[in-house]
Each structure stands twice: as C-alpha cells, then as structure tokens.
Amino acid sequence: MTANLPLNRAWLANLPPFANTSREEQDDILREASVLRLHGGATVFEQGTPADAFYLLVHGRLKATQLTGDGQRVLVRVVNPGDLFGFVRALGRRDYPATASVTLDSLALAWPTRQWEPLLARHPGFALNTVQAIGERLQEAHVRFCELATEEVERRVAHTVLRLIQHTGFPEADGIRIDFPVTRQDIAEMTGTTLHTVSRILSAWEDRGLVRGGRQKLLVRNPQRLMQIAGGDEREIAHEGA
C-alpha cells in the first residue's frame, strides 16, 4: 500500500544506505521512491514473481522465506530497519528468490528495479554503503552455511537465537527480548531442523532458566550460557540430529 507519509530526514540519515549522504543526495535518491505502509501478515512480494522493485525497510520487521525444490520452507533471513531487500539486480536475477512477508506493521521505501544501476552510478556513497551491507549479508549467509554443515543442532539453535538478540534484542529487567513475533517453527526453518527438535531444546533451556518462551515471544535470560553452548562448551541436552 502506498502512503504519502513524511520522512524524518535526521532519522533516515542514520540508516546504513543513507549514512554520510547530503540533503541534496537524499532528495535525489528519494525522488523516485514510494513510501509503503505495510500491515502485519501482508506479503510484499512472492518467490518467483518478476522483480519490479527493490526496497529499504525503514521501520518494523519482515521475514524472507524460500521454498526449496523438495517443498521445504526455509526462513532465509529476518529483515530489520535499515536493511535493503529485493535487490535482485545485484544478484543477476530478474525474479525474487524468496517471499517477503510482514511480521510487524512496517514502513518501507520502494524504488523501481530499473533505478538500481542509475542510483549507484550517481551516488558513490550510497553505492559503497549498499555494497558493504550486501557483503555483511553474504558473510552471515556463509557463517550459517558452515553451521549447517558442521555443527550439531543445539549449537545451531544457540547461534540463531544469539543472532536474533544481536539484531533485534530489546533489554528488559529479566534479560533480552527478541523484539518481534518469532515462533519455534521460525527457528526450526532458520536452523535446518524440525519443529519437534527445536521445541525440545527450547523447553530444556526454559527448565534451566536460560530462556523464557511464550506465544511468538522469546526472552533470553542468560546470553552467556547460550554463548557457551554455541561455542560447543557443553553437551547437556540429548537431541535428534538435524
């Protein structure tokens, strides 16, 4: 849904793609952008559809999921404020490789895909910030691939929960809360395992006081112990393999 909403320029300048850009550069970058108000549960685009736009999340949370050839759904990434998404031109594609759905009511900017190369050409600072963001995303994907290939499932779940609190954590008196609705199925999809296995691991962690769950909520009460698990320092929970 397109909306005529004012943008706080000072706040916008704090988002990675706009770092160190002038007011004039922002005006030019935003000239062909549409402002989208996205409601929770909506789909921004679907896997396999023609990529006619790329986006910047300004506020809220999205998740990108991919359906594999054998019908398995994988949660590829959580889209956080400041993240570009749907930029298929950078990947040499013409269609979206994943489905982007709205987890929380969100605000995003959208540009026609045809503007990808011209914007990067006209604004070296914007291009550099974008390349750095893509590089960080590729590095995270590489780390996740290595975890899937080499680590036992409990360590993978610990790494995933730690990444979630790093990017979306909100400090509370009892710990750090993941600041968007996250289900055990989501974590299973992010770690390449089953809902049953993730449920068993999280239930055991709850019994030990490491986390506290709820309906689509997760509070991490002891990040240090999760870091030990992620590092392979303990093997206390019997579980099924991935």
Rank of each mutant, 00 (worst) to 15 (best):
R208M: 13
L128W: 14
A121H: 02
H159R: 12
L84N: 04
A238I: 08
L219I: 01
S34Q: 14
V198H: 11
L75H: 12
L218H: 07
E234L: 12
E152M: 08
R77W: 03
L62N: 08
V161S: 01
V182D: 04
T194Y: 00
Q132H: 03
S203H: 05
L202M: 14
A110Y: 02
M190K: 06
V143W: 02
V58N: 05
E172A: 09
G86V: 04
E25V: 14
A98Q: 10
V211P: 02
L202R: 07
T65N: 12
R37T: 02
L128D: 05
I229Y: 10
A53Q: 10
E189V: 01
A53S: 12
D95F: 11
P97Q: 11
A141L: 06
A149P: 00
D207K: 15
A173L: 12
S199T: 15
R177Y: 05
T194R: 07
I176N: 01
H167D: 10
L56T: 11
H59K: 15
V153T: 15
L84Y: 09
L226C: 01
R122D: 02
V182S: 03
R77G: 06
C146D: 11
A204L: 02
T21N: 10
A121Y: 00
F87A: 15
E154R: 13
Q139N: 06
A158P: 13
A53F: 06
H159V: 07
E46I: 03
L219W: 04
R215F: 14
L75V: 13
R221G: 00
V102R: 08
L226M: 08
Q166A: 14
D83R: 04
A238H: 05
T168Q: 10
G92N: 07
N4D: 15
I165Q: 04
R200A: 14
R155N: 00
L104N: 11
D174P: 00
G209N: 14
L84M: 13
L195T: 03
G41I: 10
I237F: 11
L30C: 01
